[in-house]
């Protein structure tokens, strides 16, 4: 359980990939995403997956990306079986299943290597209103905190003889009430305290707040930008003019 909560926490990793401008990371993820959607052969998708793995290794996040991909295997298998069953044939079914893995891989690479801070900067860059961005930031910030609350509440109620796994479906749902009510009450208290703290630090006092961090493209970012676009265009070219044997 605690493991699940810790999986949601952002861990700072220093690597040549993670220190890229977040917009470049987003671009690379989008390029992978588009290429996975367009790929129509087993070899094509396999090459994309291999590249994603290479980037993940480069970002020193192979294990974490691997974990999400391993999780997506369950769904990939399901897609494979389903497609086979409706008569799409072995190769096409395999392509669909692999494509799903590639899509999950490309998105997870972005979310695993991008800090919530960088996400916030991207959202601001996209001119999303500050209140929306801040609501998102606080939500992400407090997910692990609320989960910890939930575990502590479960511990307290289990210590009072509550057996969460006891009984049929209906009584199991009823068993959750002693956990859910304190969780809601605590979240309400917490959000009240957050609002007070925000006000006390002048949130919303100027229409043009500034930011400690900024996004600036350095030569390194620009080089990666050019390189990734070049590879992307080349890949599209290959897709268009070359047919893989399977």
């Amino acid at each position: 359980m605690y493991w699940l909560a810790s999986g949601l926490l952002y861990r700072r990793v220093v690597s040549p990939f993670t220190k890229l401008d977040p917009r470049i990371k987003l671009l690379i993820a989008i390029e992978f995403f588009v290429l996975s959607l367009l790929a129509s052969s087993v070899i094509g998708v396999a090459i994309i997956i291999a590249s994603i793995v290479a980037v993940a290794a480069f970002a020193r996040s192979l294990r974490r990306v691997g974990r999400t991909v391993a999780f997506s295997l369950i769904f990939a298998t399901f897609i494979f079986v389903l497609n086979l069953w409706i008569g799409l044939g072995l190769l096409r079914s395999l392509t669909f299943a692999l494509r799903f893995i590639a899509i999950i891989g490309s998105t997870s690479i972005f979310f695993i290597t991008t800090s919530p801070d960088e996400l916030e900067q991207i959202m601001k860059w996209m001119r999303i209103p500050r209140d929306v961005v801040f609501a998102f930031v606080t939500a992400v910030r407090f997910i692990p905190v609320v989960m910890l609350d939930a575990f502590q509440i479960m511990d307290a109620q289990k210590s009072r003889g509550l057996e969460l796994e006891k009984g049929g479906l209906l009584s199991r749902v009823r068993n959750l009430i002693p956990v859910l009510i304190p969780l809601v009450v605590n979240s309400v208290i917490r959000s009240g305290e957050l609002a007070e703290a925000m006000e006390s630090r002048g949130y919303g006092s100027t229409p043009k707040p500034t930011s400690l961090y900024g996004m600036r493209l350095r030569w390194y970012d620009k080089a990666v930008l050019v390189l990734s676009l070049a590879v992307f265009v080349l890949a599209l070219y290959i897709y268009h003019f070359y047919t893989f044997p399977f």
Partner: peptide, 19 residues
Amino acid sequence: AKLSRKIGIAFQNPDHQLF
């Protein structure tokens, strides 16, 4: 549940158990 019958733990934060 069985152990708790013998050992009662009162955790720090009352809001974590009152419902």
